[in-house]
């Protein structure tokens, strides 16, 4: 193992991840499930996390990185407290998702993939949330769970985000 990896592993004890790794130890083909759980715990997959999983499960970091970058669900950078998943499905596109994105960008000063300076919001465009009759739609994932907002307008999206920010 290179020096970098050794140093990284020693920096955190990954206590929360341990039960997950124990659960999947010896079960072939569990890498995606492990990465999903790790991302649930830490919010994203840091290099340290990847290296730790690699060392514990005997999977090369290259392979883990390959899988993590293949799927859109995985993030290699930290996100804000609330993740805005703005639907870019066909129905949303036809009903003006681009205008909603513009309104969010104007209001929060962040583009797709970026996080606000106060670490409150991260904006992610997603493929389709499956609530097509309520297009345009966004799902906001935060400490309280997921909340979906439908029939968005430039005004209502700003109101919804201000409402979330006002929760403190």
């Amino acid at each position: 193992m290179c020096d970098n990896c050794g140093a990284a592993v020693s920096r955190s004890d990954f206590k929360e991840l341990e039960p997950v790794l124990k659960k999947y130890a010896g079960i072939e083909g569990s890498l995606i499930s492990i990465l999903q759980k790790a991302q649930d715990i830490y919010g994203y997959l840091s290099l340290e996390t990847i290296n730790y999983i690699s060392a514990r499960m005997g999977i090369t970091p290259a392979k883990i990185y390959g899988v993590a970058t293949f799927y859109t669900q995985f993030r290699l950078e930290p996100i804000g407290e609330y993740l805005i998943m703005l639907c870019q499905g066909t129905a949303c596109h036809v009903n003006g998702a681009a205008l909603i994105e513009e309104a969010i960008t104007d209001h929060l000063g962040i583009a797709d993939g970026e996080t606000t300076e106060d670490n409150k919001f991260t904006l992610n465009n997603v493929a389709c949330l499956g609530c097509c009759s309520l297009a345009p739609v966004m799902m906001v994932k935060g400490p309280e769970g997921e909340e979906t907002f439908g029939n968005l307008t430039k005004e209502s999206v700003v109101k919804a985000l201000d409402g979330i920010r006002a929760r403190g």
Binding site: Q88, G89, T90, A91, H93, C128, C132
Partner: peptide
């Protein structure tokens, strides 16, 4: 894995 955007 209903991936087609616009199908639910």
């Amino acid at each position: 894995d209903e991936g087609d955007p616009g199908a639910f």
